[in-house]
């Protein structure tokens, strides 16, 4: 698979996996207004995923459309970052995972709007607006939980500590990133590390939460080496199309 296809799949798969996770929460929120809100974020992310996957399929030129890519690849063929496949957990975990992702995504998409690949730039432009809103929402909730009650503070702190080791991967480049940056299609992920850390530290401080200490950073999702969680997620998501592979739905 070309670096170009790989690269596009990474963004698409991350959006897809997170969208899938959030979609499972609808009808189970702490208050019904949040069901509507979470559904909106999930719908935005599915929309982004479809744009990325559709484009990846075109670039690949092997006749795979968005559904072929979403429903007929195994876990090892997925290129999402590990962060988004971490389970929903409680509302604090969902919020913190969302915040870490939204902040990264917002910064990454900002870089991609400068891509020489005009399709990528266009997808990034559209997605960035949506993501700016997601970020506003998740940051607000991060602060409410951190600076809310003793219980919400403890839950938010635990979520931040548990998810922190999955943030490092967001900024780790590999050969694909180098190649894409060289061609002006992509960017060096290292470039968003400092802006991400700066804003995350500020938000955590506002939320009266401690910034988790340095730890080993898990990685591998971008190269297809995932956590156990992804297999279950895909098993559920893909069960129907795989049961009747020739069917049109």
């Amino acid at each position: 698979m070309s670096s170009h296809v790989e690269y596009v799949l990474r963004f698409g798969d991350s959006a897809l996996v997170l969208a899938q996770q959030l979609s499972g929460l609808v009808a189970h929120s702490p208050i019904m207004e949040e069901d509507v809100a979470i559904a909106n974020v999930s719908l935005d992310l599915f929309g982004q995923a479809r744009l990325w996957l559709g484009y990846a399929g075109e670039l690949e030129g092997a006749g795979r459309d968005e559904d072929r890519l979403a429903f007929h690849r195994d876990a090892s063929e997925f290129r999402n970052v590990l962060l988004v496949e971490r389970p929903n957990g409680d509302f604090a975990s969902t919020t913190v995972r969302g915040y870490f992702y939204d902040l990264w995504s917002y910064l990454a998409l900002g870089n991609l709007t400068q891509s020489l690949d005009r399709r990528i730039a266009a997808i990034a432009e559209k997605s960035r607006k949506e993501t700016a809103y997601h970020l506003r929402r998740s940051e607000d909730w991060l602060v409410r939980l951190g600076d809310g009650t003793e219980e919400s503070h403890a839950r938010a702190q635990r979520a931040a500590s548990e998810l922190w080791p999955y943030t490092g991967e967001l900024f780790m480049g590999d050969d694909v990133d180098v190649e894409m940056a060289r061609q002006g299609i992509g960017f060096d992920p290292e470039r968003v590390r400092e802006p991400w850390l700066e804003r995350a530290r500020l938000a955590l401080a506002t939320a009266t939460l401690d910034v988790p200490g340095d730890s080993w950073m898990q990685h591998g999702g971008k190269q297809g080496v995932h956590t156990e969680a992804l297999g279950y997620l895909l098993a559920e998501m893909q069960v129907l199309p795989r049961s009747i592979p020739e069917a049109v739905w």
């Binding site: 899938q20 979609s23 499972g24 609808v26 009808a27 019904m32 069901d35 509507v36 559904a39 909106n40 999930s42 719908l43 599915f46 929309g47 995923a49 479809r50 996957l53 968005e66 559904d67 979403a70 429903f71 559920e236 998501m237 069960v239 129907l240 199309p241 069917a247 739905w249």
Partner: peptide, 23 residues
């Protein structure tokens, strides 16, 4: 069935519908 909808298009339609019901 949202998490098991058989295509991305069906998934977003169903999600939007269930969201409407919450609304």
């Amino acid at each position: 069935w949202i998490t098991r909808a058989p295509s991305l298009q069906r998934k977003v339609i169903l999600l939007a519908k269930v969201q409407d019901e919450a609304g």
